[in-house]
Design a protein around this nucleic acid. Structure first.
Lengths: 213, 213
DNA sequence: GATGATTTGTACGTATGTATA
DNA sequence: ATATACATACGTACAAATCAT
């Protein structure tokens, strides 16, 4: 899927900015401005915006400026609900399908994250957390499931950014991971699924609580 | 999401052709040829192809012609696995969330399909079948779930086309639907989920059996 | 393996539709 | 409400890269 085109490059850079919160939901994306910013013509910018719209990060209407997607409360709740189910499915399948190498790598990463928690490095934890979940998605050994789960995660990322700032959330998150890892390592599909589901529901609740406050 | 642009129009028409099998998996899509066919320039055609690539119906590589997507056996199996899970999730949620109006409409459609089965009209049944499943997706009252389930269904459509040609499949399909409808009508989430899952697994097996020859 | 024909990728200009004064 | 300004949608020309020969 790698495309060495300017359009693909711009797509990736814009997606990064949206995911990292440098472009807040609701922000207007002017083609000419972006073209100047990236030193290209409007054509590849247009194509990048189209792709972002297709993946749901951007909302487009004919003849109107593209906006960074801004789902309302209900839409967000629905997406988090689906996210919980998808991640749970990944964890359950991973418990049954992961190779021993993958299981060891997951366990190693989990141990490593204990150290990050200890130092309270939220930025590094957030990064490792993405990797942790990605490894479980991969572990399900289902390319399509990986694709849609990762895509859903990306789409929700702008709204989960501050989650680890909450007091004690880092340590709790790591403990929840521990239950998931244990279940996956012993091949307990049902418990892996249930534990992941609980984990994501907690994250969703936390995020939506913060969103309201 | 409605776009009155030539690009969106072309996207829809191409998607239709792919879904209906008029453009077989693996077929090359030449931008200039399509432009001539639709009496427009290459620009809107390119954008349509980009959107189709994003939704997974076509595969694009830089500087190479776009091809109608042709997943291999393993990818197809993975997609069907996810499909079963997503549809089951929809059915389960629908059992709990549908309004009485929606329940009645679903039941009415199911009854109507009994007549279609009786006449053995496979084309009409296929159409009604899409509607049947779509109503259940809607009934889950989750816009995002609707979106990805429908998208997955579309992506699989080219590979499920001949399913109702199999002897007796029409009647069996309708019976399986009956179990699902009954569970949804009485609000039995677990059974609705399980019944839908069984239904999709049967369809998947049937399709993949036919695919092998 | 190199070269030419063909096709995609990008730039830019015009037309069309939207939004604001 | 009408008109003006402005951004997007589309068409066309050229550049770059692929793949067939």
């Amino acid at each position: 899927m790698l495309k060495r085109t300017s359009a693909e490059d711009i797509r990736r850079r814009l997606a990064d900015k949206i995911i990292k919160g440098q472009l807040a939901p609701g922000t207007a994306l002017d083609e000419s401005v972006l073209a100047a910013e990236f030193s290209v013509s409007r054509t590849p910018v247009r194509e990048a915006l189209r792709l972002l719209a297709a993946s749901g990060l951007v909302a487009q209407r004919p003849h109107a400026k593209a906006l960074v997607a801004k789902p309302d409360e209900a839409e967000l709740a629905g997406m988090f609900e689906v996210m919980a189910y998808l991640e749970a499915l990944c964890a359950g399948l991973a418990a049954g399908a992961m190779t021993s190498t993958e299981r060891e790598a997951l366990d190693a990463l989990h141990q490593e994250m204990a150290g990050i928690v200890h130092f309270g490095d939220t930025a590094r934890y957030a990064e490792a957390n993405d990797q942790f979940h990605a490894r479980i998605y991969e572990g399900a050994h289902n390319a399509y499931l990986y694709e849609i789960t990762q895509s859903t995660r990306q789409r929700l990322q702008p709204f989960r950014r501050a989650q680890f700032s909450a007091l004690g959330r880092l340590a709790k998150s790591h403990m929840e991971h521990g239950v998931i890892v244990e279940a996956i390592l012993r091949g307990d599909r049902a418990e892996a699924e249930a534990a992941m589901r609980r984990h994501i529901v907690i994250v969703s609740d936390e995020v939506q609580r913060l969103g309201h406050g």
